[in-house]
Design a protein around this nucleic acid. Sequence first.
DNA 1: TTCGGTCTGGAATTTTTGTTCTATTCCTGT
DNA 2: ACAGGAATAGAACAAAAATTCCAGACCGAA
Lengths: 277, 277
Amino acid sequence: MTATQDAPRDYQALRTAIAGRAGDLPRRLAQVAAYALEFPDEIAFGTVASIAASAEVQPSALVRFSHALGYQGFSELQEVFRSRLRERVLNYDERLAQLRDHGIAGSKSGLVLDGFLEASERSIASFREKLDHAAIDRAVDVLAGAEIIYLIGLRRSFPIASYLSYAMGKLGVRSILVDGVAGMGSEQASFITPKDAALAISFAPYASETVALTGAARTRGASIVSITDSVMSPIAAPADVLIEVAEANFEGFRSLATTMAVAMTLAVAVAGRRSER
Amino acid sequence: MTATQDAPRDYQALRTAIAGRAGDLPRRLAQVAAYALEFPDEIAFGTVASIAASAEVQPSALVRFSHALGYQGFSELQEVFRSRLRERVLNYDERLAQLRDHGIAGSKSGLVLDGFLEASERSIASFREKLDHAAIDRAVDVLAGAEIIYLIGLRRSFPIASYLSYAMGKLGVRSILVDGVAGMGSEQASFITPKDAALAISFAPYASETVALTGAARTRGASIVSITDSVMSPIAAPADVLIEVAEANFEGFRSLATTMAVAMTLAVAVAGRRSER
DNA sequence: TTCGGTCTGGAATTTTTGTTCTATTCCTGT
DNA sequence: ACAGGAATAGAACAAAAATTCCAGACCGAA
């Protein structure tokens, strides 16, 4: 039985899986779950025997725990914990050493790349600090309740909208990408009904078409979720739910890393919410 | 023989020790030394057999190498490589605390968002670690010398291609987005000349149209720059310049953070290079 | 209280892993 | 060209590991 199919292959997914099932797990297995979340590096490096001793559990409990999560054995579970350390975030000293090693200083494009990478990291880090998870939850509620989701994002935000279109298609969530091809945007928007929702994405300087289309969707009675950079944004006012994302700039170019992560989250969470029913 | 005394106990010391002795080491042992410095993660997690295979060396060579450095056996050496990864797991607790502060633990979508944010951060960090800035420079050279840049990226990679189209438009770099609209991809591609260049973006599972279009561009004599996830990728072979980006996954969804930063860099650097003349 | 089923502990079993050993190959100096 | 010594490959071995198994404990329902 290769139930390995549904077992998470990456650490974060595994974490959520463990957290989600912690309640309905047998006593000793729950104990293992708690230990795994608290000491992930012990799981990554230890042996079944050493981990079992440290968690005050029998070795067999670890194997049972692995099976309960859908893995073929403990080793498979351990591999996921190891993958987490393989792609670890560097500390400051290492980054400096790296800069020296790579001689990035001598390369113009290396500096540019480093700038963009750093802008992306900063965006993600600062978003983490002040993120409003309640807003995300409400956005998921609104979108999960919609019949069709209209994706409104042009120019700079078009990559986000097109990604959402791709991801929702994969996940079986009905959506329509309102693109500007042949100036058909307003045509597409005219089919919006109050049962639908619009997901609008726009950053300063706000594309006028995006603002207009969002307003039109509002007028036609659809719910609106806006992803934008401030409460003063023209697409903030008509929104039922506002997700604020402050992306860092580098040489006038805005990182899209955080916005992309938010987009992925909405797509996956909406699909998840719907499948719960 | 407890010559273990003088063997380095921390990774940095071991690194310098290996680098220092690399010259006067026997051939096969020098090969091991080079491998160890290049793939420390492999040493940390692999088994003697797997590492030996990957380094194209006999298992016994690894043991001899360990002895040569003053360790009692391979396991002792491996422990040092592992300690390097243990050290920076410290920020995990902080992150957990952060999760609790925000009350994210109680919110499903919060966990999902955190997963995507973390995947993005890890992608960026690991890319920084092994980034080949020479490849970026060559890519900029090729693209800056092209008359028209054809952007080839479909499905999952389409957001990247569409972003490049937007950014290059803003920067005054002539580019054509080869999109799949109305199946016109091959039509558009048929105008490519040897003076042009193609920038192809594709990740596993590689969209067949992307592969076909890239091959067509190559046939027509254009230079090719490929952004992909491995040297085994079908768009790696026809490429003049290959940029490898290994994005982290979360629940099967690939982060696009790093790829997006690379795309921004190419657009900005190409524009910069051209304006120098 | 008793029955049914699940869960658990610990030993037995099987697989994997690190290490050692020796015949052979490859150098190097004469 | 050849001896002598170091280095290497590959198999054999012993140790350690993961996994399986089963008897008994535990828990909830009747």
